[in-house]
Design a binder for these strands. Structure first.
Lengths: 147, 147
DNA sequence: CTCCTTGCAAAAACTTTGCATTCCC
DNA sequence: GGGAATGCAAAGTTTTTGCAAGGAG
């Protein structure tokens, strides 16, 4: 998905709900999608402020919530007490391997696991909308350092 | 693991660290393990207070942190902004299905998924210590209500 | 023009911490 | 007795919200 297509998706989401496109929302979107990784609101706000001093953190919270509802971003919680967001489109769905020593995050995807998840959910009568899977442990380089 | 064994594990953990066993800690442990599910500190505190008015919420926070460090409980974060704890021993490892409408939490386990996780991790050179998997969606009864 | 959005600051929700007092060992 | 634990309230964090002013359609 190109940046342009992404904007169109968001514009449409906005319009469908009777909401409006604003300078701040556009700026936050551009900044967010221009960066990579798993950003906390605070981190994103810092980047946005570098481009426009006047944007308030409340607007970043509000915009990221919208972006999350639109499906263009996913909220993540890695247990450090902060909500992090990551871009959701133009990318395959993926899960995370997290090194508890150095904090490295590796993304992966596995279709077989996804299929099994669907089967498990069906057994319980659940209709799954989204999921998270995180594997915590030591990455290759931290294992060597400890050995 | 019987309640008695559990107490011994905790007593030992406490003693090894030069900490002390207290009335409050014992009460919180008993209450926590006597209940089932995924309790927030607030919920647990309410139950403990029913037995002893004088226990402060700070002590519950401090005790649950200890319990988590001892490995007898796990901290969970299901995205509602609260840390929840669940008993960790005497139970199989399991994952969660969470209804985003009514908050119902169903536990499940699936060996095939666990095996696939191990394979994925190995490919990346990771040594996995623990993992979380959460499937979010609508439970059977909430699907009906919405239909 | 109308209603949505923004910034600001206040408030809310959750968790941690400082300190005097109380309690184990 | 001495260090650890507790209760309380104050302070920290992260996120949300009320409101007057500004902006998009």
């Amino acid at each position: 998905m190109t940046p342009t297509e992404r904007s169109l998706v968001f514009e449409r989401f906005i319009a469908d709900r009777g909401l409006k496109s604003t300078r701040q929302r556009s700026l936050i979107l551009e900044t967010f999608f221009g960066l990579d990784g798993h950003l906390s609101v605070e981190e994103l706000w810092a980047k946005v402020r570098a481009l426009d001093e006047r944007v308030s953190v409340a607007t970043v919270y509000r915009t990221m919530k919208l972006l999350s509802e639109s499906g263009l971003a996913h909220a993540r919680n890695f247990g450090d007490g902060q909500t992090r967001y990551e871009a959701a489109v133009g990318r395959e769905h993926h899960d995370h391997l997290i090194c508890t020593n150095c904090g490295t995050i590796i993304e992966f995807e596995n279709d077989q696991i996804e299929k099994l998840q669907a089967i498990v959910a069906r057994k319980q009568g659940f209709k799954v909308v989204s999921h998270k899977m995180e594997l915590y442990g030591l990455c290759a380089s931290c294992q060597q350092k400890r050995a």
